[in-house]
Amino acid sequence: MENKQKIAVVTGGSRGLGKNMAFSLAQKGNDVIITYVNSKTEAEALVKEIEAIGRKAYALQLDLNNFKSLDGFISSLSSTLKEKFKTDKFDFLINNAGMGKTIPFEQVTEEIFDEFLNVHYKSVYFLTQKSIAHMNEGGRIINLSSGTTRFANPGYSVYASMKGAIETLTKYFAKELGAKGITANVVAPGPIETDFNNAAIRSNPQMKGFLATLSPLGRVGQADDIGGVVAFLCSEDAKWINGQRIEVSGGINV
């Protein structure tokens, strides 16, 4: 099946950063498949928003903490591409899905560690591996990391160390998938005012104010500070960017 229309898969695309990424990609002329864990209503609402601007969209359920569900998801993705998009391959994989907790190092349990390991590293590793056979040559992989791999934020030892692993893994994606014309890059946001980590920034004005003082621009980030960067990295203008970590943090702790 020939695929002329570019298709992006955005994990965790129903809310927050992922929602803005998906919509930004659609605004740039791409069709979009988003995944959600529990937010089916929000996901379906975003699908309608994307369809309203003339692009195709579809939502699939995916829980990265349930590692054994990956094969079933890939099967659903393949069926969706054929039935809804009339093709057998997609172009862009945006590994955005994640969860957050602020936990002091000495209080981290094995259960919490394993959940972060599944969601932020193991499932990203193998979802990407299983997706390659369904990606077009010349595709793009965008992995989401965090400013906290560059500067330490107490309570983020698990989250940031997994993201550090993702940053190393991205270089290997770039190196080993280059023969297929597939590039791989990291986008690393700084503090963003969304519902991530139980809306830690949005619901805590004192924290928000403090974080704003760390940026030369005097504010924390918003979702629309990130989505356009991801869409750019999936554009022809970014075809020669590969194996890079691009921090989108307003220059925090510069």
Rank of each mutant, 00 (worst) to 15 (best):
E106N: 11
I103G: 06
G100S: 04
V47P: 00
I53C: 13
F126A: 07
I94C: 04
T41F: 15
V108Q: 00
E49W: 01
N136Q: 13
L77T: 00
E115Q: 15
S76D: 13
T102A: 10
D114K: 14
I132Y: 05
L93S: 04
S76H: 08
G98A: 14
E115M: 15
L117A: 15
Y58S: 08
F116Y: 12
T80M: 13
E110N: 12
S123W: 05
L127P: 07
N95H: 09
N136H: 02
F113K: 05
G98P: 04
E137L: 12
A52D: 09
I132M: 10
D88W: 05
V124P: 03
T41W: 12
N65D: 11
A45P: 04
G72P: 01
Y121P: 07
N96S: 09
E42F: 08
N118L: 08
S131A: 13
N136P: 03
G54E: 03
K68Y: 13
D91R: 04
L64T: 01
R140C: 14
Q107I: 02
A97Q: 03
S78E: 12
N66D: 13
D114T: 12
D63C: 09
L70K: 00
D71I: 06
E49R: 06
K56R: 13
S79G: 11
L77K: 02
I94D: 07
N65S: 13
V47I: 14
G139Y: 05
A133T: 14
M135N: 01
S39C: 04
D114I: 10
G54Y: 01
G54R: 06
L62T: 00
L64Q: 00
S75H: 12
A45Y: 07
L77V: 06
E106R: 11
T80N: 09
N65A: 12
K86D: 15
K122V: 07
I132F: 05
K82G: 11
G54S: 05
E137T: 12
G54H: 00
K130S: 12
N136M: 08
M135W: 03
I103T: 15
D71S: 13
L64P: 04
F85S: 01
K84S: 11
K86M: 14
I74L: 15
D114V: 08
L77P: 06
I50T: 01
I132W: 06
M99V: 09
R140D: 08
H120M: 08
F105I: 14
F67M: 12
S79D: 12
F73I: 05
F113C: 02
F90Y: 02
E49L: 09
G98D: 03
S78D: 11
G72V: 05
H120Y: 03
D63Q: 09
K56Q: 13
S75K: 14
S76G: 03
F85A: 07
L64A: 02
K84Y: 03
